[in-house]
Design a protein around this nucleic acid. Structure first.
Length: 455
RNA sequence: GUGGUUGUAGCUCAGCUGGUUAGAGCGCUGGUUUGUGGUGCCGGAAGUCGCGGGUUCGAAUCCCGUCUUCCACCCCA
């Protein structure tokens, strides 16, 4: 018999893992709700046309397609079939696809429910998404995103709130010194404009984004390869030396972008957010301007966020987000601005694990195990167990009349802190012998005393 | 999608240049004065060596393919 297995990039979660994951999502949910976000859920798969073309070519490749039901090949005409063109064939044999992120389905949701929604609409959503990527550290083919977005407001106060929200969540998780990096798409457009590379915006930003990875020379080389002129790259020089304070960076940018209206607008937006956060303060996160931050999907138009784990932890970004002026436009609803952020649950988990930041109390364990001495004694035990459960004390009876050693061993292995021994003697006296598994001490007590000791 | 890496009992791994019934630790299980676990002692079960081909008298060990793992690129949470 072949051992069963799961597809690559997917995982089973043990009880301990689920408990820890719940700890994270509970905190995120609590923060989301306290900021006024409301939960929605969307289907795990969508019509292909909803997803395809929304994430770029790379994205299309990474979307899991679902085969049509029935005798789907019969409907393919012979020409398409013999051409062996995957893209063409796919559209004929697959009409549904697994959710790739939560933002596009949300945009679809907003358009579809526009008449029931009161704008601005703040929603959060915590669900799995799927990508046909090649797995590696912190990268899975099935993973969870925790998104909070607001649509229908252009106000920069939303951006300010999202910075606060990031800070609130990571502070509550006791994950200190995360770095919230912020940039603005308009600044990037502005830079491309003033150096005369507007038509190469995407190549330009993708290359710039790699600065901390491949260095200044690497970036310049890549830009040259992508056809960005040498004179243009020369004009970029100030950008490469951009490690001052926020205000220094902004001053530098203002000089560089003084001929670009778009660029200046971006600076103004960034300035607003920085000023507001400076006045309001953050608990434990650091907010930084990162001009090289370009990641993010093609639809971002304003602010771009990315959260990096504290220094010394080797992990990709643990959160990201931004402003998109016209996301719902692709589904026919114009002029609705949206801005949102996402938390990468699986990566946050890995970071907390690495830094040992899960509280010891994170466990949903049984408090007390009653030893099984036989049916008569078990009935006596069950009566007490029911009463304890009514008092919110998790209690259980060992189901079989096994040897004591085995029953104690079971409590031990499951880290159950107390056992109750109630045999013939106790039943007669209407008492319970409570044993503390850690100290080994035990005493014979009444039910009242028992419940008090277990509280 | 490109390049590399990994795969041996439930888990972590050993197994030299191919040579008889493939090992260890932990775990599991049974026993160790049958109302007591976490430490000791004794015994036991458990692997068609990821899968499929090939080379060879003979392969866990060499070759090819495939899947999986991890890593880099790409991209991203």
């Amino acid at each position: 018999m072949k051992k069963p297995s799961i597809p690559k990039g997917t995982r089973d979660f043990t009880p301990q893992e689920v408990v820890k994951r719940t700890y994270i999502t509970d905190i995120i949910k609590r923060c989301f709700m306290s900021y006024g976000f409301q939960p929605i859920e969307t289907p795990s798969f969508e019509n292909s046309e909803t997803l395809m073309g929304k994430y770029g070519d790379e994205g299309d490749r990474l979307i899991f397609k679902i085969l049509n039901s029935g005798d789907f090949l019969r409907k393919v005409d012979d020409t398409t079939y013999s051409e062996k063109d995957a893209t063409k064939l796919t559209s004929k044999i697959s009409e549904k696809a697994l959710r790739y992120d939560l933002t596009v389905p949300f945009a679809r949701y907003v358009v579809q429910h526009q008449n029931e929604i009161t704008f601005p609409f703040k929603r959060y959503q915590i669900q799995p998404v799927w990508r046909a990527d090649r797995p590696q550290k912190g990268r899975f083919r099935e993973f969870f995103q925790c998104d909070a977005d607001v649509v229908g407001s252009d106000s920069l106060w939303q951006e300010v709130e999202f910075v606060q929200l990031y800070d609130a969540v990571f502070s509550a998780l006791n994950l200190k010194e995360v770095v919230i990096k912020m940039n603005n798409r308009k600044i990037l457009s502005g830079i491309a404009e003033v150096i005369g590379a507007e038509d190469k915006l995407i190549d330009f930003t993708v290359a710039l984004d790699k600065l901390d990875k491949i260095g200044e020379e690497g970036v310049k080389k890549e830009m040259l390869e992508k056809g960005i002129s040498e004179t243009a790259i020369e004009k970029l020089q100030p950008v490469f030396n951009n490690d001052g304070s926020a205000s220094e960076k902004l001053t530098l940018l203002k000089k560089l972008l003084d001929t670009s209206e778009t660029g200046l607008q971006g600076i103004k937006e960034l300035q607003f957010i920085i000023d507001a956060i400076e006045a309001l303060g953050l608990q434990s996160a650091n907010l930084e301007i990162d001009i090289t931050l370009a990641r993010g999907l093609n639809y971002y138009t304003g602010a771009i966020f990315e959260v990096a784990a504290p220094k010394g932890v080797d992990m990709g970004s643990i959160g990201g987000g931004g402003r998109y002026d016209d996301l719902t436009g692709i589904f026919g609803l114009k002029n609705v601005s949206g801005v949102g952020i996402s938390f990468g649950l699986d990566r946050i988990y890995l970071v907390l694990e690495e830094l040992n930041l899960f509280p010891a109390t994170v466990s949903a364990n049984t408090k007390v195990l009653f030893i099984n001495f036989g049916n008569k004694e078990s009935l006596y035990a069950m009566k007490a167990i029911s009463k304890l459960r009514g008092l919110d004390i998790t209690a259980e009876l060992y189901p079989d009349e096994a040897k004591m050693g085995k029953q104690m061993g079971y409590a031990d292995k499951r880290d159950i802190p107390f056992t109750v021994l109630a045999g013939d003697e106790e039943v007669k006296a209407n008492l319970y012998t409570l044993k503390n598994m850690k100290s080994g001490e035990q005493e014979k007590v009444t039910f009242d005393k028992l419940q008090n000791l277990l509280k």
